[in-house]
Nucleic acid binder design. Structure first.
Length: 245
DNA sequence: CTAATTTGACCGTG
DNA sequence: CACGGTCAAATTAG
């Protein structure tokens, strides 16, 4: 249920913010990286919440770089102006019920549903990574991916890599992801997941998950190599009911 | 040798 | 028509 997910995300964000406050009040034991991680996670919670609210590809909110938090207010305004329908910029999230639209209704409200393919979920998951080890983990997140393309993106220094699940042939798994290095100084990769895996994770590397419980301190502190990897949720995808060749 | 990646062409979308 | 995503031939890795 999207309602619950949004609330979970916002709770996460709140917890991250609390942790950040603790870290800021205790500057001796707090590294810059941890602080940045917490900020990053807070923003991620917002982004996830917003993309949940912008349900089902009707409106997609994408963040493009870690600079997002530097221009956070600008971005918020932009997002608000892009936000669907009549939500006030200051609408409380406790008003979530107003966004709780049955999914079939959302689908039917889509203007051009050219094919079921356009219903595919898009998940923008920004993974911040330290060093080469982290890069490997960003590539190898529990599934096996094969690269099928690479593209230079206009403003970006680094090209974007396009990967698809290797079990596309065998299991018809249509999951896809993009990895883009965002910055030189702190090595950040923007990873966008499309669709869900219908296959099982094949790699020995377990998928990192962030639990839905509010207490995630250990998880956060553990993830200095992969600063944040969010669980690829099992959003149902109508595409997978289609016959596969 | 086969499998995976690279890379320019192609193509749809805004 | 430019940009971003995908295809597929060529090339490299295993």
């Amino acid at each position: 249920m999207d309602h619950k997910r949004v609330i979970d995300e916002l709770i996460k964000g709140k917890e991250f913010a609390k942790q950040l406050r603790i870290h800021l009040n205790n500057s001796t034991s707090s590294s810059y990286e941890v602080q940045e991680l917490l900020i990053h996670n807070i923003l991620n919670s917002y982004e996830k919440s917003l993309s949940l609210l912008a349900t089902h590809g009707v409106h997609l909110y994408r963040s493009t770089s870690h600079e997002s938090y530097l221009h956070f207010e600008k971005r918020v305004k932009k997002m608000e102006s892009q936000a669907p329908s009549s939500q006030s910029p200051h609408s409380e999230f406790s008003d979530l019920d107003q966004f709780k639209v049955p999914s079939h209704q959302i689908f039917s409200s889509k203007k051009k549903s050219s094919s079921d393919e356009s219903m595919q979920k898009l998940k923008n998951i920004q993974v911040k990574v330290n060093g080469d080890k982290g890069f490997q983990e960003a590539l190898d997140d529990g599934y096996s991916w094969s690269k099928y393309g690479q593209k230079d993106i206009l403003g970006a220094k680094h090209p974007r890599g396009y990967y698809r699940c290797t079990s596309r042939q065998t299991q018809g798994c249509l999951a896809t992801k993009q990895i883009q290095r965002v910055d030189d100084a702190t090595i950040i990769y923007d990873i966008t997941y499309h669709g869900n895996h219908t296959c099982k994770p094949s790699s020995s590397t377990p998928q990192l998950e962030i639990q839905n419980q509010p207490s995630q301190q250990k998880q956060v502190l553990k993830s200095l190599d992969i600063i944040s990897t969010f669980k690829t949720e099992n959003l149902e995808c109508p595409l997978y009911n289609l016959p596969l060749t």
